[in-house]
Structures are given as C-alpha cells and as structure tokens.
Design a protein around this nucleic acid. Structure first.
Lengths: 333, 333
DNA sequence: GAACGGGGCTGAATCGATTCGATCCGGTGC
DNA sequence: GCACCGGATCGAATCGATTCAGCCCCGTTC
C-alpha cells in the first residue's frame, strides 16, 4: 500500500499536522524539521492523496472543458491555450467532446459536478444556462467560450465575429470584387450569423455596387465546403460570384478543393476566397488561404485565467471579453 | 452548502448506509425504500461527492492521457476514440499535452499519480518506464500508444509501421517509380525508423532496379515538409526522385505545397507522393493524398479498453496489440 | 412454540489530508 | 524569580461516502 501522511510523520518523528504544514506552508515550519520531513517523503516515495485533500480542503485541481467540435483545429488550439495556462497552475484539464450532442453535453456537466472541478470552460451548443447556474450555486464557476450568455450572468471570451465579417467583406470589396457569396451555416449558429451580418454591413457601407448572396451549408465542415463549391461551379460562369467568404477555414478548404477547372484553380483569379479562424492548415493549403485569425490560444488562456479568478473570488462580476480578429492576407484573396 | 448523503438519509428517514446502498446496489434494497430515497435525492438535488467516494472506496473515474504532439490530427483522433469509449463507462479523460517536452511529461505523470487516476494512456517521448513502473506499484496501470515498452512490461497498442513502410514503397514501385525518397525524421523516433526500414525491405525485395534515398527532417511538421520540398526542388530535374514517401501526412502536406513549378503541381505526374496516418485533411488536399491509414479511433478505443481491463484485474498479462495500416489510394500516388 | 434463516436496515469505523485550538518551551522584561 | 510572549509543534475533529458486523422482525420448519 502507498505511504500516507501518517507514515511520513512517523518516520520523520513529527505529527501529521506538521507534515501537512511542510506540504502547504513550509515557511511556518522550522527549517531543519522541513528537511527531515522532506527526506522522509523522499524515502517513502510519498505522494499526496488528492481525494483526501479535496474532501477536507475543498480545493480542486482540475478544470473541465467541454468542446462541441473536436474536429475543428480552432477548438484544439483553444484547448491548448487553456491547458498551457492550467499547467502553469498545477491544474489538469478534464476534456469532453460533445460532438454537438446536447445530451452528451449535459452528461459531462454532471460528471464535472460530481468531480467538483474547480470550474468549467464551455463552448456550449444547447442551452446550458440552467445547468451552469446550478454549478455556480455549488461554487463552480464557468466561462463561456465563443458564445455569450444571453443575460450576461456568466463571463465569456470570444472574438468579434461581426467585425470579422465586415473586415472580410471590406477586403474583398477593396480588392475589386463585386459579387460576394457568403458560404456557411446553419445560421442559428450565432457566430455564423454575426459573420454574415458583418459582411452585410460592409456591403451596405460601400460606395461601390456590390452584390451579396448567401450559400447555405448544413455544417461547417470540409465536406460541406466542397459540396458548396460544386454547386457554385455548376452555374454558368457569369453567374458565379467573384469572391467567396467562407464561414470558417474548414469550409474554405473544401471550397478550395472543389473550385478547380481543368486542373487549374479558379482561386484567386476568378474567385477570391477568404476564410475564418486561420487554422494551421490554412497557410499550408494549395493556395495559401487568406483568413481572419482568431487568437485561439490566447482565448483559451484568457478564459482559464478568468475562471481561476472567479473560483477564487465568488463575488467576481461576470465580464465579457472580446478579441478582435486579424486579417491575414495570403494568396487566396 | 451542497447536500450530503446525510441530508438525504434524514429526509428519506433512513440511515446513510441505506442511501449508499441505493446508490450502489439498488437491488439489495426494498423497492419502496429505493423510491423514497430517490425522491429525497431529487428534492435536495444531491450529487455524489466523488472525492469522498474515492477516498473510501479507492475507485477513480478518471483516466489520464498524455500525448506528445497535440498538433497532429492523428493523435487527436486517437484521443477521440479513447474519449468515446471512456464516456461509455462514465469515465472522464484528463488530457495532457507534452509538446515533446520530457519534463512536462513527467509532471503530468506526477499529477496523475496524485489524482489517483484509474489508469494512464501515454504516447511517450522520453523514457518513462521507471515512472510507469512506479505508478503500477500503486495499482495504476498504463497502456502505451504507438510505442512498445522495451521489455514487454506494459501493454501497448500501435500500428505496424514496418508493414506500412513496405506497403508504401511497394505501391510506389508497383506504379513504376524507381527513385524513391523517404522524407522524415528524426530517426530516433521509432515509428519513423520502422517506416523507413519497411521501405528498405520493399526495395530490397523488388526485382526492379530501385534507388532509395533518405531526406532527413528535424520534425514531422508541415513546415519541415515544405522545407524538404524546397530542397528537392532546388536540384536539377534529373536528380529529383520520382516518388516521395513522407513519414506522416503533415510532412506530405508540406511537400505538396512546395512541389509546385509555374503554378503547376509536380504531384503526381513527375513526383508521386504518399503519406502516413490518413488524417482528415489528407483527402482534402489540393491533390488528394494517397496515404496509409491508421485506425486512429480504434487505437484509442482499444487502448482504453485494455486499460480498464488491467485496472480491474491487476494480474492481467501485458499484451501488445498491433493493427495493420491500410493503403488508401488517392490522386497523389 | 422454539429454533432457524435471511431480507432489510442501522450506525460506527474508516479512508487520508487539513485545520485550528491547545500545549510546550526558551527567551525577555521587570 | 515570575509572568508573559510567540514561534514551533501537536493531535483531535472534520470532510462525505463506503463497508460490514450486528440487530430486528417475520416467516418457515420440525
């Protein structure tokens, strides 16, 4: 059986309370006692039992992170950012993919509640405010990622999608494009909706005579992007847009893949293409992709920091943090 | 404060022992008592305290997963497979990225030990056998992913890289290629070494007169792949290989991106290109990538299953599970 | 009707770390 | 010489769930 704090105390010839103090407040213990205890710890290969610690002290060293789309490299990067920051605080991430499944999302939140995680980061799909409120009542704060809470009851970290949509469209218009297609969907995804709205604003604000059309997809995946590309390609040439704003880079990569005629890509000459997220593969695409970069790691890191603050200070006032996307111009537009 | 089992017992008019029985062995409790207790649980919104449970019963509901390269979609898929399986057992994954940093790897293992995870899945970088042995001494089993333990002391799940390397080279030779470059590295990565060795075997076994050269990279990334491509392109045309076997798909995507002259891809006509892993982006590349598919989700799922078995039966004999890769032929070779 | 069996339930002991009031002790001040 | 102080240490109480020996009660058996 593994050594417990009692064994350490016995070997070091002190009380368990003192061992605990060495572990948690070494500066309140006489230096040579510290040394003695530490060498006992070493000898016995003692490792703190986190369950007991948590039971008594109520502090947890895990944070839960629920992500809805594990396939998207963007979320991956957000997770990485959060994980790096967590690691610096000696905290581990419990990681849950929901695959956009609301039931699964709920089950993960239940699991986190049992585990008494320190807090929850969540990119929610369904409406989870009631569950989050319940967690908060138990002292478990949460931070929304890439989403707002309707009523501002929870902190959030996200990127200004409206601005991003506008920047994308402005760039396309500024480089002479006049028939813009926005590809994405479903539009009950808030982010997508905002990106479209932003593009609309840019078009409306422009002096030029710009048309904007919407090509709806059922999901934000490479396959859906390719399918949308096929549909565009099927049109007579003059009816095709001269620019496409894809709702995210996965869509854009799919589009890029399909917008090829006789082995030649239509991008960027006949059709400019711009994506969103700037995932690592965007730069590595056949035609390097112009995209709106989200500071994904920073988002994750920031969310985790806010979460830790709130878990320390339960009175903290929820705040909405919004980052600006950055236009990364490459070959595709 | 959140309700405890004592509160539930009081409200239901039974003892705490009975509540615990309802929770853990409902069939040993009279049906109407079960109902009464359950409604008390409902009323109080009682949630089990996992820390207390674990302290007393010693059972854990988390599994640790240490991955060395979170950027590679392949590992992502492995994680997903493991996570799906874990979820079915009501277990959550604690997820640690080491970024090929040995110190970080060690720290995660320490953290897992404190948390008394049920077991550890690990795609190790450094030599961790001593730490894993120590965990095992504490009753925490581990399963290696994509690696063997030198002495067969731990179970492992991996793909036959040697066979994969051979299949890749055989395919290239079979389609008439005679000057094959293997791109990858560093070669102290066991997997990469095996893939190269497999390719060598295929070349040696071939009746045709085939040359094989090694183009070394410092890492298995898109950027390194692109750099290797530049180097190949810099050669006079007749000295270029007519086929490239990339150590993984990230390298292959980088190569694909750089092997372009005058806006025309050399792939597949002048240079056939084959990758390894068959990540989701492989099919979506400019020239859809021929690759050796690893059953990544199955790997993750299998590893988790073995881990759970071993955590249940400490006497279980370690076993090495090896999957065969599958050649997926697309346009690039 | 006494002995027996067993289902259903009780409640105290337990897991291991933390916490905090109590205790000890050497030094200081008067 | 005595009271007092404060740093260092002690050790009992505690967190909440699980476990198990033991009790109660009712039906069965002979």
């Amino acid at each position: 059986m593994a050594a417990s704090i009692r064994d350490v105390a016995q070997l070091a010839g002190v009380s368990v309370g003192t061992v605990s103090n060495v572990l948690n407040r070494p500066d309140e213990v006489a230096p040579d006692t510290v040394t003695r205890v530490n060498s006992a710890i070493e000898q016995l290969a003692y490792v703190r039992n986190d369950a007991a610690r948590r039971l008594r002290a109520g502090v947890s060293r895990t944070v839960g992170f629920v992500v809805l789309d594990g396939q998207n490299p963007f979320f991956n990067d957000v997770v990485r950012g959060a994980e790096d920051e967590a690691f610096r605080h000696g905290i581990a991430l419990i990681h849950g993919n929901t695959d956009e499944d609301v039931a699964r999302e709920r089950m993960y939140l239940d699991l986190f509640e049992e585990q008494q995680v320190r807090g929850v980061l969540i990119a929610p799909h369904g409406d989870v405010t009631s569950q989050l409120a319940r967690l908060r009542a138990r002292g478990i704060p949460s931070v929304l990622i890439d989403r707002f809470s309707g009523d501002g009851r929870f902190s959030s970290v996200s990127v200004d999608s409206l601005a991003g949509g506008r920047m994308a469209a402005e760039h396309l218009i500024g480089t002479g494009r006049r028939r813009i297609a926005v590809v994405g969907g479903p539009y009950d995804l808030r982010q997508m909706n905002d990106r479209l709205a932003g593009a609309r604003i840019a078009v409306d604000d422009s002096d030029a005579d710009v048309e904007l059309e919407v090509v709806a997809t059922e999901a934000m995946t490479v396959a859906e992007g390719a399918a949308a590309g096929e549909r565009i390609l099927a049109r007579p040439r003059r009816e095709r847009p001269d620019a496409v704003f894809a709702g995210n880079d996965l869509l854009a990569l799919g589009l890029l893949q399909s917008l090829v005629v006789d082995g030649r890509s239509l991008v960027p000459d006949e059709i400019a293409l711009i994506g969103f997220d700037d995932i690592p593969f965007a730069a590595a695409a056949a035609v390097p992709l112009t995209s709106l970069r989200q500071p994904s790691r920073v988002i994750g890191r920031t969310a985790l920091r806010i979460l830790l603050e709130e878990s320390t200070d339960p009175e903290a006032i929820p705040r909405q943090t919004v980052f600006q996307p950055e236009l990364i111009v490459r070959a595709s537009a």
